[in-house]
Design a protein around this nucleic acid. Sequence first.
DNA 1: GCCATAGTTCAAAAATTATTGAAATGTCTG
DNA 2: CAGACATTTCAATAATTTTTGAACTATGGC
Lengths: 174, 174
Amino acid sequence: MKPPSEKTAGRRSSRPSFEPLQPHEVELADFFVRMAGILGVPRSVAEIYSLLYAASAPLDFDQIQGRLGMSKGSVSQGLKFLRDHEMVLSVKAKGDRRERWQPTPSLAASLVTLLRSQVLPALELAQPSLQRVLEGAQKKGASPEVIERLGRLNRWNARALELFPLLLPPPPGS
Amino acid sequence: MKPPSEKTAGRRSSRPSFEPLQPHEVELADFFVRMAGILGVPRSVAEIYSLLYAASAPLDFDQIQGRLGMSKGSVSQGLKFLRDHEMVLSVKAKGDRRERWQPTPSLAASLVTLLRSQVLPALELAQPSLQRVLEGAQKKGASPEVIERLGRLNRWNARALELFPLLLPPPPGS
DNA sequence: GCCATAGTTCAAAAATTATTGAAATGTCTG
DNA sequence: CAGACATTTCAATAATTTTTGAACTATGGC
């Protein structure tokens, strides 16, 4: 598999080197990085996803690391993030030790998973808290306007919490 | 400039001190800070909005600074952000020099403005870029699968760009 | 079991983003 | 229009987030 003499062409510190990114791959990465930014997803994660998205075949760990020129740690954490959000999946050819990664078929579904994981916990956490805030304000004798605002906020949150799962249903495997 | 003796009960460096936050105000701030975090809005901005949201009457600059214990710079920038996104508006009592701030009536509308400002520019920027990426991939003879993926991404972006203004129409004053 | 390979962990370093505050810039008011 | 007051600006600092890499763990093949 590997040339016995020179390992994987590995330079000094374990960072395999591969063909640098093509211009169109760079431009796609820019796109994904910007979009990811809006959702607070780190650059390295977006770059990995982008690379897989534009790849004609699944890529393994070393190929990802090599072509993006990033550290093992980042690749590992990035793939973990993408796995956790069901944005990539691995195929393993039989008799092959390493995993090879490709994007999940539906980007739409991936985004849903991502949004769910960010928004749902926040909504759930908020519910009892907002309740208490409203009570606190009432007890303190806040103005009717404030009471009205806080009540509206409560109802909104409740409705969002109830609607969200309908709009973005959880994937079967969770 | 600085109080030789003592002005608004100001401590050392020009920071007026006011009544500290009530428990329910703190809890509401936590909520807004968390939600803002999802959209990448800084804590200080969320705190200001939260304070105004729970306030029975509009607050002026010094009250905001004092009750939140933050710097003048942060209050100024925070209010600018909120103003720019039409999340607060100022009322000025006649014969009064300072502005007094309150949240815009509709939180929903505020969120729309915020989302627009984040997402629309990204979508617009992406359009020509994605076009080029697709062409680049075609020229490079990428696999049919990749071409299909990139084509889908293009159509998505175009559709989003076209739908977004319908879903979240720009406010009259812009 | 043992070695080699594949991937993970996590503390430290680097990069990014937010906040501060002192100086600058208005702008009302007398 | 002068001077006080309200707000903005922005370079410096602080806080936070991301990335790195070396040590560690896990797994498969012999």
